[in-house]
Amino acid sequence: MEPTPPPVAIDALVAAVRAGDSEASDRLFALLYEEFRAQAHVLLRLGPQQTLCTTELVNETWLRLSGRVLAIEDRAHFVNLAARAMRQLLIDRARRRHADKRAAGEVLTLRAATDVAGEEPFDVLALDRVMTMLQAVDARLAEVAHLHLFGGLGFAELAQMRGVTERTVFRDWRAARMFLLRFIQEIA
């Protein structure tokens, strides 16, 4: 399928989001959700236990929509929305399938492309619940995990975005990951 330039000026949307326009934010969210859904559909149709590389999805989606490299000052806004859209999409899918037929939630291998541990099979619904728990306990760690897993952000970029060292971001991710691993066992 040849990508066609979208009718919306995505650059303008991102600029509006940056300026604090909440309507633009909603529109961008919806746009990304649709994009991801279309792409994930192709991929996930292949069967369960597929690998979804969030980094690639987020980056390629941007490129497809805008045709140029994302400026660093826009990146944070874009990735934030993209991560939310991605997460929402995965949850919706998993819920649907859950209702459909399966006893268990959908197991999806999320690959943030940068993880030391490589691909990690996540039960999406359980993951979402534990992420919400983490949000209540430590919002900062939750955000790092959210952006890394669903936004596909690497540690270097996360560090730049948050104005801390890579070491700090990596440490936060490790702590968050331990939390997820620890509690995903308990809540099921």
């Binding site: 268990a104 197991v107 359980a126 331990m178 691993l181 620890r182 066992q185």
Partner: peptide
């Protein structure tokens, strides 16, 4: 207990996926 999970590939962490959990449970 938490630190023990650092760096362990998720598929080696105990009872990581629901499928496995269901069986264990």
């Amino acid at each position: 207990a938490m630190l023990a999970l650092d760096g362990i590939p998720a598929h080696l962490a105990p009872a990581w996926t629901l499928t496995q959990r269901a069986e264990t449970a």
